[in-house]
């Protein structure tokens, strides 16, 4: 069974961005937020959240430059 066969993942991949990176960000986002809600503010959670936001911005810029 592939990852894309899982119910929610399949849904996102089918009706989402048609771009694996944006689809992945859509899937990771809520997991990260729930993780922060459980663990709270720590160096690790803050680092992951910063990485998420920076990665999103960097990827948009990268797509713009590479086009």
């Amino acid at each position: 069974m592939k990852l894309s066969d899982l119910p929610i993942v399949e849904e996102v991949f089918e009706s989402g961005a048609n771009d694996r990176v944006f689809d992945s960000l859509l899937l990771i986002g809520p997991v990260l937020i729930v993780g922060i809600a459980i663990v709270g503010r720590s160096l690790l959670t803050t680092g992951i959240a910063i990485a998420y936001v920076l990665f999103f911005v960097a990827y948009v810029v990268y797509r713009g430059i590479s086009n």
Binding site: L26, I36, I50, Y52
Partner: peptide, 29 residues
């Protein structure tokens, strides 16, 4: 459907951005 995935993705980014700059998570959401 495209409008929704863009909006949902921006929402996640916005929640995390507000949380990073010091807003409590519930407030950030």
């Amino acid at each position: 459907q495209t409008i929704w995935w863009i909006f949902i993705l921006f929402t996640f980014v916005s929640i995390l951005l507000l949380w990073i700059v010091g807003m409590p998570l519930w407030d950030a959401i």
